[in-house]
Design a protein around this nucleic acid. Structure first.
Lengths: 107, 107
DNA sequence: TATAATACATCGTTATACATTGTATTATAA
DNA sequence: TTATAATACAATGTATAACGATGTATTATA
């Protein structure tokens, strides 16, 4: 069981890593917000709430790293699908470079 | 040259990684605040300002991951040396584990 | 027929990096 | 001699991002 310091540290570490993983996930395959939360949990073991993911997606769209498209469903609420842009892809490459530099500093 | 998004992302990534690197540095060798800033820059290529490091050291002491000791100098201002505690060392181990889990998720 | 799951979103709180500013001492260059 | 930089500590205010709580609406299930 994690202590309070480590729990808070996990949260702080997400500030940065989460946007990387969201871009990585959407580069692999476009999806809608709710689906992204499930995907991060099941295939990445990253737990995020809606109050984290929706503002994050909005920020990434403002930065033009993502675009969205509403898709009507045969039944139920329309889904807002997110797609990574070319700028998103090139930023993802830069982010990966930065992360490997950081990793090289870990003893 | 990094764009605004990447510059901000770097800052966000520090929120979490910096406390790890400070603990790692102090595990290697105790030092005082100003010295720590120099060490992080020269041997780790991590740039931090005093307004980042001093509050961080205070937080890590509150968590009892660090302790400090004032050391008088033959000339000049006394220096506040920081030492990692046993709890600090064990938390550092946990942090390193967490980081490798995160890394394994990078494609 | 109530409850859970799906799907969107916002608001307030909290934590942290950083620019700016401040104090004080010592070394160096003009 | 004097101004400037470097050393060494610290606090204040701002911006950013994760998260708990809350809200709306639809569909599936018990």
């Amino acid at each position: 069981m994690k202590n309070d310091f480590l729990k808070n540290w996990d949260t702080q570490l997400k500030k940065g890593m989460l946007s990387f993983f969201v871009l990585q996930a959407l580069e692999h395959k476009e999806c809608y917000g709710y689906e992204l939360i499930q995907n991060l949990k099941t295939s990445m073991e990253i737990e995020v709430t809606e109050s984290t993911i929706y503002p994050l997606l909005i920020r990434l769209m403002k930065e033009e790293l993502l675009v969205h498209q509403w898709v009507e469903q045969t039944s139920g609420i329309p889904r807002k699908y997110y797609f990574i842009t070319e700028e998103g892809k090139s930023n993802l490459v830069e982010m990966k470079k930065n992360i490997s530099v950081i990793l090289s500093k870990i003893k």
